[in-house]
Design a protein around this nucleic acid. Structure first.
Length: 327
DNA sequence: CGTTGAACCTGTTTGC
DNA sequence: TGCAAACAGGTTCAAC
């Protein structure tokens, strides 16, 4: 259920109640989706929640140091930067306490919400974080495709660097660079979080429909105009979805337990056999990149195949070895 | 580089 | 009715 708009919706909801709260205790059910379950119980209690943000589809809960005061090394918020004189140091000195980041990925069926301690526990709730106001933050995940991990302030940049720019904020130029020279299908790249972070199956299909681009088109063959159109479509679709609280297909609920309504605006996703709202043709469903892909066969024409391979090479990324410079 | 299929896990819907 | 297959908002990995 959770793609960028749904995660953003959850984050905004949590932001209304979590910042300032202190975590008193942690209780866990099944832990096979948690990177280091023991660390949660050992390191979270006593910490105060400083912020709730979104990193692609991850929810980032920033936890201030235990004593509530950042060590001088972390004076600049929670960002640790080694002193110039000790540039070899990439980790804070042993024993020095910095911010911690609790990262939560909702997978397909994850939910994160603040509940009263006596509210009934819905099945498949595997994480309970007791707060100092008497409530608790609960993590529920039927399929347990989600993920919870703890990352130090020093390790956060490295974690982020493994993801592309946020789908909501990426510039056209960066988006174009990301697609340049890629022979992969555009749908596959939209789903690849290393390319652009935040898109999932629903919004990839919706954006492609809006931009009138077939999901199987090769990224390298998109015209500059098409790329600009797609970039624009992505922004439009994501913003509209956030405004409506995301899409609730069967069970997505925000932090307060309310469903989103963007599913009413879907033009392609989940509409196989229904009329395209733009041209009246019937929406079709095919499998692309292993996922159901919905599109209008008339508005989003099939790519012509058997054309000569693209002759342009991918621009080398900065810092990468020059072409042909293997060793 | 890219693609495909399977795996992870549980529940719901669809088809015969 | 019943049981099996297909399918589900995500990610990762092996094999080709």
């Amino acid at each position: 259920m959770p793609e960028l708009p749904e995660v953003e919706t959850v984050v905004r909801g949590l932001r209304a109640t979590l910042p300032g709260r202190r975590i008193l205790a942690v209780r866990l059910g099944k832990t096979d989706f948690i990177d280091d379950p023991a660390a949660l119980g050992e390191r979270l209690p006593g910490r105060r929640i400083a912020a709730v943000e979104r990193i692609g589809k991850f929810i980032r809960v920033e936890l201030a140091p235990e004593n509530g005061v950042a060590h001088p090394l972390f004076a600049a918020g929670c960002k640790y930067s080694p002193h110039p004189s000790q540039s070899s140091a990439h980790e804070p000195p042993e024993g020095v306490d910095g911010c911690l980041h609790l990262l939560v990925h909702l997978g397909m069926t994850g939910r994160l919400a603040v509940r009263g301690p006596h509210e009934p526990v819905v099945p498949h709730t595997h994480g309970f974080f007791e707060l100092d106001d008497g409530n608790e933050l609960r993590y529920t995940d039927i399929r347990r495709f989600g993920r919870i991990l703890l990352v130090s302030a020093a390790a956060l940049p490295e974690f982020q660097s493994r993801l592309g720019d946020d789908a909501l904020f990426i510039s056209v130029a960066a988006f174009r660079r990301q697609l340049a020279g890629r022979r992969a299908r555009i749908k596959a790249l939209l789903l690849d979080q290393k390319s652009v972070r935040g898109m999932g199956n629903i919004y990839a299909d919706e954006s492609l429909w809006r931009a009138r681009i077939h999901p199987e088109r090769l990224a390298s063959r998109l015209s500059a105009q098409e790329i600009a159109r797609l970039h624009q479509a992505i922004r439009h679709v994501l913003r509209a979805a956030i405004k409506l609280g995301g899409s609730s297909i069967s069970d997505f609920l925000d932090a307060e337990g309310k469903p989103g309504s963007y599913q009413m605006r879907h033009r392609a996703y989940g509409r196989e056999g229904k009329k395209c709202s733009r041209c009246g043709s019937l929406i079709r469903r095919i499998i692309v990149a292993g996922r159901s892909s919905h599109f209008c066969p008339r508005c989003q024409p099939r790519p012509r195949r058997n054309r000569p391979a693209p002759r342009h090479r991918r621009a080398p990324s900065r810092g990468a070895p020059a072409r042909g410079a293997r060793r």
